[in-house]
């Protein structure tokens, strides 16, 4: 059952990616990106990573789609057909893709219990966290407590992004005051 789900989801993922490349209507491309995010979120659910799936669905499929649509409404809706020839980009993409796939041959198989990722600090988190922190959701424990510095840095990044947009685009209330003057 899981294999079937994976095949269907990955197939749709490839189709949406191809459609996003082929389409020239940027509105449709943004929709394709949103569907792509939703499909990846479903894949994360199948893999059991519900927290990641939640974030992907909320940020990737939701908010970033809205922001891209907002950007589209500021620019034009249709992409200009490329003036250069397609041969060189295709070659670069094929070589890079082949190198990446070659790299995955060395990776441990999906779900392999002997994979390094399951042996580094993860076992300690799972074994010691009930005594040390006592919150049922291990993801929250790792995010907020064990790796608090990381999360503080991430929050600072989001804060900086917000401040950057405010500084670059300004905000409406200020412009209204200027108009009144």
């Amino acid at each position: 059952m899981t294999e079937l789900l994976n095949v269907v989801l990955l197939g749709f993922l490839a189709l949406t990616a191809l459609a996003a490349i082929r389409l020239r209507d940027l509105f449709a491309v943004v929709m394709m990106f949103s569907i792509f995010s939703l499909l990846s979120a479903s894949l994360f659910v199948v893999m059991g990573a519900v927290d990641v799936a939640f974030t992907e669905a909320a940020v990737g499929a939701g908010v970033s789609t809205v922001l891209m649509l907002e950007t589209l409404s500021l620019t034009v809706r249709r992409e200009r057909p490329p003036a250069h020839r397609k041969l060189l980009p295709l070659l670069v993409v094929t070589v890079t893709g082949a190198a990446l796939i070659y790299g995955t041959f060395d990776m441990p198989k999906f779900g392999d219990p002997n994979a390094p990722i399951h042996h580094h600090v993860v076992t300690r988190y799972i074994e010691a966290s009930p005594q040390e922190i006592g919150i049922p959701n291990v993801v929250t424990e790792v995010l907020a407590s064990y790796r608090g510095f990381d999360t503080l840095g991430e929050l600072a990044v989001i804060f900086t992004a917000g401040v950057g947009v405010m500084a670059l685009l300004g905000t409406r209330s200020r412009r209204r005051k200027e108009n009144r003057r």
Binding site: V63, L67, L74, L155, I158, A161, G162, V165, R175
Partner: peptide, 17 residues
């Protein structure tokens, strides 16, 4: 912070329109 940043970014973009 995340909620406020998202809303501020959205309103900044929407305000340009």
């Amino acid at each position: 912070t995340v909620a406020a940043v998202m809303i501020v970014i959205f309103l900044a973009f929407a305000g340009r329109n």
